[in-house]
Design a protein around this nucleic acid. Structure first.
Lengths: 208, 208
DNA sequence: AGGCACACTAAGCGGCCGCTCACCTTCGGC
DNA sequence: GCCGAAGGTGAGCGGCCGCTTAGTGTGCCT
């Protein structure tokens, strides 16, 4: 298994852009620890221990604990943005592309809940510069979804009185999946994605 | 102002069930600190300092820092449940009562964002017994919303293929308001409440 | 074989953490 | 006027925190 890691939650995490191997192991360990206990409650000794290394080893690959969070957050936001861009640039009308965007975005938040939780809920733990960088990515995420909704409203496919507010609500709905989704629960990521795509189409007044 | 406190965020917080006065001041300080920085990143010295007291004063009124969080979480959940029960037991058909429930629940999460943030996002910091107690309250919250949706589906007012999933989504949408709502932003809690009530009625397929 | 860059560890430093304790004030009841 | 209860403080304890440093093992280049 060279390009993927099986984590405790049973998710497949492709962190292959992180090298060398020890740096990736530390980063995967940090994702799990941050997701379980939160950034501030996680100690560098815990991260190193999960990666099977001594506490000092962390500082060979990362300057600080915050840099670890920054790298995780950056990679996660890049991935989330990539998912939305792929759906937004796909084939079909606005209805089809909005449904694709929501279902794939939700599948990521549910299937990779561990990563998504860190990415979406630990933003405040970053310093000012890192936070500003991530907030810029979030604005791009917002713009992708808003673009599809605006287009559907323009063509008459959708009935949306408040484009900005509806965009906010759609993203909020998807992101919050990372908070409540339970891997051992009754629903698969695919089922939640399909349900949410249907609910969002209702929200924008798309014809069934 | 004996029954309400004006906090830094400009919100009115009625913590009058907490006595004596010093205990209430400490609790309000803890709510602000937990909301801003998170439970684990908040120190007891910070809480006491905000309340204008020495660090040791906290332990006259609360056994531990966790007891403070427990009290906040309990009071907040009681209030949230009260809001939903009032709306669910109100007059009108299911459409009217669901709109009331969503708009008042959202107004609380937006207008009392500081409290709601702590209540909704710091659950994991509680110990097993306290968490179990809070989870029981959350099940009651879920039951109230599900009850309205089930009734609307039974009378034919709503078109809801998946009652449990839709309930989950409606609550998720409302709760996440506490994460993104900005007091200095362009929308008032009332506006968000009205927007969300409309979006939720669309989600359940209620006639306009 | 020698040298040296690299990855890693054991030990520990300074500092802040949650929390405690000995002591001090204020105040109502008799 | 005395007392005990209640509410407060300053100092500090034991411990864990993020992070550093000195030293060790390993493998590649010459």
């Amino acid at each position: 298994m060279s390009a993927a890691e099986e984590t405790a939650g049973g998710e497949i995490e492709p962190w292959d852009e992180v090298t060398p191997d020890a740096a990736r192991r530390l980063l995967v360990a940090a994702v799990e620890a941050f997701a379980e206990r939160g950034y501030h409650a996680t100690t560098t000794r815990d991260i190193a221990g999960r990666a099977g290394m001594s506490p000092a080893a962390l500082y060979i690959h990362y300057k600080t604990k915050e840099e670890l969070l920054h790298r995780i957050s950056r990679i996660g936001h890049d991935r989330a943005l990539d998912i939305l861009r792929t759906a937004a640039a796909g084939e079909g009308d606005a209805t089809r592309r909005l449904a694709d965007a929501v279902s794939s975005f939700v599948r990521w938040h549910a299937g990779r809940r561990t990563t998504a939780r860190v990415v979406q809920y630990e933003l405040d733990a970053l310093g000012p510069e890192a936070r500003a960088e991530i907030l810029d990515l979030r604005r791009q995420v917002d713009a992708e979804v808003r673009g599809i909704i605006e287009e559907g409203a323009a063509t008459g496919e959708f009935d949306v009185p408040d484009v900005h507010g509806t965009t906010l609500a759609v993203l909020s709905l998807c992101i919050d999946v990372a908070r409540w989704f339970n891997v051992d629960g009754p629903r698969t990521p695919e089922e939640v994605g399909a349900l949410y795509a249907d609910l969002v189409l209702r929200m924008v007044g798309a014809a069934k």
